[in-house]
Design a protein around this nucleic acid. Structure first.
Length: 522
RNA sequence: GGCGAAGUAGCUCAGCUGGUUAGAGCGGUGGAAUCAUAAUCCAUAGGUCGGGGGUUCAAGUCCCUCCUUCGCUACCA
């Protein structure tokens, strides 16, 4: 294979179990990765956990367990989420691994060699929870005269020796890079924000801490640990081999796209590129900041008690149902809203009623009337060709174009459009009525539908991998045509002539019911 | 305060560089069909495209202004 495609999610900070936002990001990234594989590209998909930092250390201490043990436990939940949601990762990287420490120290040495690191003192109001310093002016007065950060977290006056990175030096190089690579930041609104931020001037960045030791040691300064972001971002390259000159590293870097949440755009579009420039490493081709998922239009938060467990949700509605809903109902890049009603409505309408039912009625007719043998084609009519045109246009032109553009919801909209065309076709042709009047025509109609359904199933593989695969299995579609290139080739007649028979068709997408408690709430 | 995004049918939203009667899905209504997961198909419902002003032969689609929501950022020190 050639044409490598390297995609990553953000490296999650596992100070709690994964929530729906983590799941959303993983699912979206997975759909893109799967799509690219089905386009024949050599894909590497990396995710992982960012386990350093004071917060982890403190949480562990609070629980009375070793920090590493907490990290192991929490990281497991994220790894487990990937398994449960059918996330097709190639690498799960952890910042606590030995190799990652080595990689982080290697990049540190490169920054140092470029003359971009210097030792200084840092003092100011520090928030442990945010792991950030704030200006006096940014603080607000809390209860009892305590000082609070803009995020409402407590701050303490802290003085520490710190290594600094000459971020200021990269202001112009970054702006030049943005100008030369208009697709580097997406969507557009995030790009504008970043450019204005950089134009406003960059201050050097404190990149080490001495107040705790749960992190990567700074080479030559054992009492310092590296700033969590420098360490975390390095995961994108350490996960594929850096600093070793491995085959993966040579093949996959620079990354095709980093998929991240809109809240951490700056780290990925300002700090990360600056670090890489300093280290003499090529920059990723694109950073995409997706939106947030709101619960019934409200921001998720622990205090509101509306934090949703994605595993529970998948258990309730099905993994593919959840995946489909998130990618279909939320325009990628914008905020989206989630509710049980919305999932049930969308999934029933699209997957159960339209697509699932289409497959079921077609396969049932074949199963009952031909003992499962695939019907022969006795010459196609204009109606057949018109349907082929619609489905083929969707499957080999529109859907790939939208996926390529990371517009999953639009890809699925085109997919549904083609599904509608199939349902309209089956109603007009009424193969069940042709049984007595024109059995040969009945065969052709069902064969036509069979082909179209297979094409649509392949196009849906990135989003609903489990159920699409099950359908293709039921239909006996050979593995080697289950991709965007081959599914529009002539595989049907050979399959029919091979003597393949479909078994009694099994429904793919059961109609969902609104959970009882939700009905009451609504 | 500055910059930016958004405000389009009951709901969720499409509408690129301005141009025939403003679109889709869901919901609602009226038909058809009965192979299928009571699923499907057809027709339809008449929305001042946030308000106002302007440019143009022609504006959701460009300009100005106002209102609302949101994001980034700054400041009041």
């Amino acid at each position: 294979m050639s044409d490598p495609f390297y995609i990553t999610t953000a490296i999650a900070y596992p100070n709690g179990k994964p929530h729906i936002g983590h799941a959303y990001e993983a699912i979206a990234t997975d759909a893109i990765a799967r799509f690219q594989r089905l386009m024949g590209r050599d894909v590497c998909f990396l995710t992982g956990t960012d386990e350093h930092g004071l917060k982890m250390d403190q949480t562990a201490r609070g629980l009375g367990i070793p920090t590493q043990q907490l990290a192991d436990e929490m990281s497991f939940y994220f790894r487990d989420m990937c398994d449960k949601l059918d996330i097709s990762i190639d690498h799960f990287s952890r910042t606590t691994s030995d190799h990652h420490h080595k990689a982080s120290q290697a990049i540190w040495k490169r920054l140092e060699a470029s003359g971009d690191l210097y030792l200084d003192r840092y003092e100011g109001w520090y928030s442990v929870r945010d792991e950030a310093y704030y200006d006096e002016a940014e603080l607000t007065e809390g209860e009892g005269g305590t000082k609070l950060s803009p995020q409402g977290t407590p701050v303490e006056w802290t003085v520490e020796e710190s290594w600094f990175f000459r971020l200021s030096k990269y202001q112009q190089p970054l702006l030049d890079f943005y100008a030369a690579h208009p697709d580097f930041m997406r969507p557009e609104s995030r790009k504008n924000e970043t450019i204005r931020f950089v134009e406003g001037g960059l201050k050097d960045l404190s990149v080490s801490r001495t107040s705790f030791d749960w992190g990567v040691k700074v080479p030559g300064s054992d009492n310092h640990v590296m700033y969590v972001w420098l360490d975390a971002l390095t995961t994108y390259i350490s996960g594929i081999g850096f600093p070793d000159d491995t085959e993966e590293w040579r093949k996959y870097w620079p990354a095709s796209v980093h998929i991240i949440g809109k809240d951490i755009v700056r780290f990925h579009t300002v700090y990360w590129p600056a670090f890489l420039m300093s280290a003499g490493i090529p920059l990723p081709k694109q950073v995409f900041g997706h939106g947030f998922l709101l619960t019934r239009g409200e921001k998720m938060s622990k205090s509101l008690g509306n934090v949703v467990d994605p595993i529970e949700l998948a258990g309730l509605f099905g993994v593919d149902a959840l995946r489909y809903f998130l990618l279909r109902d939320v325009s990628f890049g914008q905020d989206g809203s989630y509710s049980p009603e919305a999932i049930v409505t969308r999934v029933n309408a699209d997957l159960a009623n339209s697509f699932g039912n289409l497959a079921q009625r077609t396969l049932s007719l074949i199963f009952k009337n031909f003992e499962g043998c695939l019907p022969a084609i006795h010459g196609h009519t204009d109606d057949d060709n018109a349907l082929f045109d619609v489905v083929r246009e969707a499957v080999s032109v529109q859907i790939p174009a939208h996926f390529e553009d990371l517009a999953m919801s639009q890809a699925l909209e085109r997919w549904m459009h083609a599904v509608f065309a199939c349902n309209a076709y089956i109603d007009v042709q009424a193969p069940w009525a042709l049984k007595k009047t024109d059995p040969e025509r009945m065969e052709t109609v069902l064969a036509t539908l069979f082909i179209c359904i297979a094409q649509l199933a392949v196009a849906a593989l990135p989003v609903i991998p489990g159920s699409a695969r099950k359908l293709l299995d039921q239909m006996g579609v050979p593995e080697n045509v289950r991709n965007f290139g081959n599914i529009v080739s002539h595989w049907y007649s050979p399959l029919a002539e091979s003597g393949f028979r479909i078994a009694q068709p099994q429904g793919l997408f059961p109609r969902l019911e609104l959970p009882a408690e939700e009905e009451n709430a609504a």
